[in-house]
Design a protein around this nucleic acid. Structure first.
Lengths: 294, 294
DNA sequence: CAATCTTATTCGATTGATGTGAAGAAAGAA
DNA sequence: TTCTTTCTTCACATCAATCGAATAAGATTG
């Protein structure tokens, strides 16, 4: 009759390991193990196949885990019934795409703490696709992701920031045209399979320009260092690159017209934060303001 | 995060008093009070108006109580997922109409205990209408009620017993016709607003006979004693009247043709006992067999 | 408007459930 | 095999829930 075991099961099912689930839940491994054993006894069912070392969910276990999320969602709804719509209380899980977690997160936390002292957020980082999948699965309440076509219709989105994409050139290429860069140095591509990476790839397509060489990196700071070191040039959101060595990296607006990357707060329609998402979105100041803070 | 408080709230909302809810739940009054207080603190909401002395649910409290049943139902479903369809385990609430609780209940309990040792039933007695309302509200899992038009379509029913209605005449009226009885002695009517009472009323209508005088009683044993004492005559299901003084009461089949009262096991389609209801119905032996046992 | 009844709240004591940390067992990798 | 990782088990500590008794507060009655 205790929902904690169901929440644990849900996380274990999502993560696929007792240790990692324990870490996520701030409990010891033994507590997770005991909860799962208790649950199996209570339901008189084999939820896990202990023949494997991360114990594997049985088919029944998977069904129960899925159903557990239904129960938890119903419970969360009940809690939501009691909350007035202009304040936010409770424990929530919020996801951030990596770049936003660096720039937007601190300001968000400061404002949210001031405005909603009774709301607590567990922050998790992931790529847009990952976060969206977890929103859908119910293991995340709300997330900041790259807006665009990739966000399903079933989700409500609220704009959080608009950021211009810019060319980032190494100092020695200060006078080069973009075509020169394409021909003479590498293009440093921020992960093409991410929300922002896809946006960058679109720009490359649009310019109908094929870089002579492409280097893929998974961190903005790594990209910045490579550009500064003269390894190549890149395209990145302006606020992101500004955080690194602005003076030693040449920034140029996108041609022929500016291109923006939009970060949005996404939330499953009807989920427990649905009614509050707009309020939360206000806790993100305009992107430029935050950028100059940094 | 504990469903017990929700279950308590649900019962309190149904019954409308902490004392009675405590009794039903086998807890002390103080435990109920504490749970409700804890729940109010947890949800940070006023569920009850303590200005009255059975505390009254606030509108929000009513909504929460209703939603609590949704959560509990989802949880019960989850438990149901793990139960194999040909066995029954768990704690259930079963309702009996008063007459059936006397005759059918003992046999039912004996058979159920033998066949489903891990199933436990809380037995509650009530009139058909009451039991049906509680099935719908989710505070009862299954119930034995008088079958007929009164059972809503949303419920599945399984026949439990067919019982002939009979005229019950006092010894001194042994040679009288029914018309004589109508004219000369009172008709003792078992509660007309109950399932079986309505059936009896229909018979009176069908015979187009208006009794000279009607006495309404709410207990079969009281009816039997009155008939035996010569106060009047009556119509009752045969097995019920047979339990009392068969030798001193004259039984006569209904004219022109026999009429039966059907007891059915009713269960809300899709509820957690839905899949097992047929099995449970088998735990009721044919009515005649039980009647001769008594 | 007492006096009384009924019902809910509060409080200290007890019990039971749940979590922790360390030691042991079991699966998977080297 | 041997080592590493991961889960299980156990004794112990901690916290939450319940009980019974005393108290308080709304309802009822004369």
């Amino acid at each position: 009759m205790n929902l904690n075991t169901l929440r644990t099961l849900s996380v274990v099912a999502e993560i696929g390991s007792f240790v990692d689930a324990a870490q996520r839940l701030n409990m010891t491994l033994s507590a997770v193990s005991m909860q799962m054993k208790t649950l199996e006894t209570l339901l008189d069912a084999d939820l896990f196949d202990r023949g494997f070392r991360p114990p594997q969910l049985t088919p029944l276990g998977r069904r129960v885990a899925r159903h557990a999320r239904t129960v938890l969602a119903a419970y969360d709804d009940l809690v939501g019934l009691c909350q007035s719509p202009d304040t936010i209380k409770g424990d929530f899980r919020i996801g951030f795409v990596p770049t936003s977690s660096v720039r937007l997160l601190p300001g968000f936390l400061v404002r949210v703490r001031a405005r909603f002292p009774d709301a607590h957020f567990r922050i998790e980082t992931g790529l847009s696709d990952d976060l969206l999948a977890r929103l859908k699965a119910g293991t995340l309440d709300i997330a900041v992701v790259t807006g665009g076509d990739d966000v399903p219709r079933t989700m409500r989105t609220y704009p959080v920031s608009h950021e211009a994409l810019v060319f980032c050139l190494p100092p020695h290429a200060a006078d080069w045209s973009i075509e020169d860069c394409m021909a003479r140095i590498s293009f440093i591509h921020f992960m093409p399979h991410t929300g922002i990476g896809r946006l960058i790839a679109q720009q490359l397509d649009r310019m109908a320009a094929t870089p002579s060489d492409v280097i893929v990196l998974d961190r903005v700071d790594a990209v910045a260092e490579c550009v500064r070191a003269g390894v190549g040039f890149s395209i990145l959101p302006e606020p992101d690159i500004r955080r690194f060595a602005t003076d030693t990296i040449i920034l140029r607006p996108m041609t022929p017209e500016p291109v923006t990357r939009d970060l949005v707060l996404a939330c499953v329609a009807g989920s427990r934060l649905d009614a509050h998402a707009r309020l939360l979105a206000q806790a993100f100041a305009p992107a430029t303001e935050i950028a100059t803070d940094a």
